[in-house]
Design a protein around this nucleic acid. Structure first.
Ligand code: FES
Ligand code: FES
Lengths: 159, 159
DNA sequence: TGTAAATCGGATAATATCATCCAATATAAT
DNA sequence: ATTATATTGGATGATATTATCCGATTTACA
């Protein structure tokens, strides 16, 4: 009859990645998709394709460009692209690292200063196992690979 | 000679769990540790044991108490404890769910409205694999189990 | 050379998360 | 009964993250 509502003091929401990283990954996949066809893409087009706020996406793309993960061009006909040669070299770990830093590699699951095998938190070994798999996945998954899913409408960057 | 400094616009920091969840898990492990010995623990003692801000920890413990994960007692000799009977029944998933909600069960890794196999994001299958393992780990790991690590100084809740 | 279209970069605003403060309530012990 | 000690709950403050705005710069093209 009546549902139970959980009225929480906190509105915290679990998120594996930060918004910035999410946009960064989505954008990179879209750019990879177009770059494969030799097409360049403007900020506005990227934001539309991945359904993200334009100005914020600009900041994220700037970070990726500074890190050399994508290449930016100013002026008319400008925009962003990923050079064909490096298309297979861009992995998710590069993007996350450029945006969120490398705390993913040394962070403790329970929030201790840093993950330390010598003085581990109680969750260390269980957590490390998962974190290592996540790390491995990010390091071995290329944007090119993920862009393939877009080609035949098998995957989507927005809904 | 000189290091390269990454001066980022963002200061985002990768974190698997929210601070609230981190404190919640740490606190629950400490309470489990003491409850096994039949001891009750005050807010102040909890905060000291897990090196967390007192007032904020109070809010987190309140949430856990409301959800019946821990039991609170007011007045002198008051504090928090986990009934011995339920000690083996409290899993990390209960704590995370009480604090961060269940977006961990249905969230999309790339930030789409929700994870949806029918219209998946390009990272869906890789992400789902990891998320399912994390979920499984949280659902099968009890605070009692983790408290054991504390007993012989094999694990630590602060440094 | 001028103009329009694009990114860049700095400042600022909005929101969410993290954290603190304090009065109210409950209760054990004197 | 009174007092001291503890959690509760509401309001508020601080910080981090997300988001926007706008002038400056770059550059293709007429
Ligand atoms: S010490 Fe906590 S995850 Fe390694
Ligand atoms: S749709 Fe993105 S993780 Fe399932």
């Amino acid at each position: 009859m009546s549902d139970i509502f959980f009225i929480s003091i906190f509105d915290t929401n679990y998120n594996m990645f930060s918004k910035a990283s999410e946009y960064g990954i989505r954008a990179a996949i879209h750019l990879a998709h177009l770059s494969k066809k030799g097409e360049r893409c403007s900020l506005r087009q990227v934001a539309k394709a991945i359904d993200s706020p334009v100005a914020f996406t600009a900041k994220v793309l700037q970070l990726l460009a500074r890190d050399g993960i994508i290449v930016s061009f100013q002026g008319p006909t400008g925009g962003y692209e990923i050079p064909k040669e490096s298309l297979s070299l861009v992995h998710l770990s590069d993007i996350v690292k450029a945006i969120d830093g490398d705390s993913i590699y040394n962070g403790c699951g329970l929030g201790l200063e840093s993950c330390n095998e010598k003085k581990p938190c109680p969750l260390h070994f269980q957590f490390k196992s998962i974190r290592d798999e996540l790390k491995e996945m990010l390091q071995t998954t290329s944007v090119q690979e993920l862009a393939k899913g877009l080609e035949y409408g098998m995957a989507f960057l927005k809904r």
